[in-house]
Every structure is written in C-alpha cells, then in structure tokens.
Design a protein around this nucleic acid. Structure first.
Ligand SMILES: [Mn+2]
Ligand SMILES: [Mn+2]
Ligand SMILES: [Zn+2]
Ligand SMILES: [Zn+2]
Lengths: 143, 143
DNA sequence: ATCTAGTTTAAAATCATTCTAAAGAGCCTT
DNA sequence: AAGGCTCTTTAGAATGATTTTAAACTAGAT
C-alpha cells in the first residue's frame, strides 16, 4: 500500500499539491480533497462551488476558477471541450474519450480501449502531437 | 456543369438559402456569398464582420451571430470546438478532423482519410451517433 | 399596393471568466 | 516564536463574447 495510508487525508492532498508545484493552501487542499480522490467525474466551476458549499466550506469565485486552471495546468485535471458555454473539467486525466449528448449537456466517458485510432496523420512540420481528443456526439434515437 | 452558372451569383446564393429553409435576406445572401463559395476555411463572428466591412457592407453584430447560428443549424456551416473563448465556424461541412495549435490559436484541417477510427464504441442505450469529432492538439517541437 | 410574418437593428442585458488592489497566509530565516 | 517575503485569497469591478429586446424594416404572398 502507498504512503498515503499513513497520513491524514489533509496531509495526503497537501503532499500531492506540493509534488505538483502548488503551495497547499487551505482552499486548494479542500478542493483537492473533493476532486482528486480518485473518482472519475466532470465538474464545472459552478458545480464545484456547490460541492464546496455542501461541504460547509467557502471559497471565493475567483479562487475556484484559479484553482481549476492551476490544477489543469499542473496536470491534476483535464479540460474537456464540448461547447462554448462554460468550461468542463475532468478528474480523469488518463487518456480517454467522451460521448456528448448536447440535448441535456451530458458528458460520459468512453473506456480507453473502445476507440481505436488506427492511423494518425503526421503533425505539421516542426510540430508534435500533444493530445488526441475524440468526442462522439450522440442523440436519443426518437430524434 | 451545374445550374449555378446560369444564375447571377446573388440568385445562386438566394436559392441555396431557400433550399436550406432560410429566407434570403440581403444580409444572409451577402454572408452566404462570403462563406459558402466553396472555399474551406474557419471563421469567427469577428473575422466575418471584418470581411463584411472589407466588402463595403454593414451587418449588425446581432445578425452576424444569428446568421452564423442559423447557417450552422441548417447544415451550411459546422461549429468546431477547440476552446471556450469564442465560437469557430467551418465552411467545410464534410466529415473531417482538425489539428489545433493552442499556442497561436490556429486550426488546420486534416484530410478525411488521414484519421481512421478502426473501432467505435456502441452509443449508449437509446442513443445514436450523430458525429465524431477528432481534435489533435499540437505544439511546436522546441516546446 | 397592401399585408403579415419573419428579420434586422442598436442598444441593453447576460453571464462565464478574468482582473484589481488590498488583506491574509504559507514558509523560510533568524 | 517572531519577522518578513512572496504567493494567495478575497470581494467586487471589469471584460468580452453572445443573447435579448423592442422597434423599424422587408421578403414574399395576396
Ligand atoms: Mn457567455
Ligand atoms: Mn469570455
Ligand atoms: Zn472523462
Ligand atoms: Zn475544418
């Protein structure tokens, strides 16, 4: 078992943040405890703020945005692009793709192996591929 | 050759709009003439407004947005999702994918055949696949 | 020419996100 | 344990793309 089982949860997430190059402030540790617990899900600044409130905490709006951006920059979260209305963050940073149902703005993970890219184009000269995002747009069958 | 060569360009685009179920107003025809001439490119509300101005015309901001949305809804344009900053519209509605270089917000088409999805997952129960979007994020090699 | 539903317009409103500048908190050094 | 430096947080203002509004206009039918 990993070392995390010897620490209090707070210390565990503080350590995780330090490793990511982020100073473990009270707010960041609280958000890390909510988002980086291993569960795979998709959150928005709004839904995260709700979670924080439900947990009996308070973090200013600016800090929620800053933290989501910093976690993403640090590779602790992943931003998913499916529309222009607001940002979606994925707690699953492993390589995987998504189903997106615009009808009710629902995003669902596709297991890694269920999409196979048999052939990829070469990146344009002087460039390299950083990530490949596949979004499969779906709709309910009865139109 | 198609029938379009027998009409004045204006009539040609008016007809195209009628077929798409859109009343061919002066503004829509002007925008159609700029965007639906067969060239494949990516535009924003802003870049389109510039083009309109350069052409010596004027269309209100609201109408530029409405028209882009209506054209997209009608299948004359395609919206491409690569970031949350503003909408990108593609004059190429054929099935194709994109390279995206975040560094300088540059979007480049990938020829249809250069990405092959060998295996697609089944859509969730009661749903069908409407579109598959692949975005390959790239960056210049010297980081 | 007249009518009517659909469209355009300038301006205001919306709203997610970023910025500001002042107060607070990690953390390193004494 | 205290001091100090830098990074963070905060509430609130600002930003900016997009939508909405309500009045003026027009395509197309009669
Ligand atoms: Mn918006
Ligand atoms: Mn914005
Ligand atoms: Zn996911
Ligand atoms: Zn394209």
């Amino acid at each position: 078992m990993t070392q995390k089982n010897r620490m209090t949860p707070k210390a565990h997430f503080a350590e995780k943040l330090r490793l990511a190059g982020l100073r473990p402030t009270r707010q960041r540790v609280a958000i890390a405890a909510l988002l980086l617990d291993g569960r795979h899900r998709h959150v928005t600044a709004d839904s995260l703020t709700e979670e924080i409130t439900t947990a009996g905490l308070h973090v200013s709006g600016g800090t929620v945005y800053n933290t989501l951006n910093q976690f993403t920059e640090a590779g602790l979260l992943r931003r998913v692009m499916v529309h222009n209305d607001y940002s979606l963050f994925d707690t699953n940073t492993d390589h995987h793709h998504h189903f997106y149902e615009a009808e009710n703005d629902q995003l669902v993970d596709i297991p890694h192996d269920d999409v196979i890219l048999a052939q990829l184009p070469a990146a344009p000269d002087g460039h390299e591929i950083k990530a490949v995002d596949v979004v499969i747009h779906i709709q309910s069958k009865n139109s």
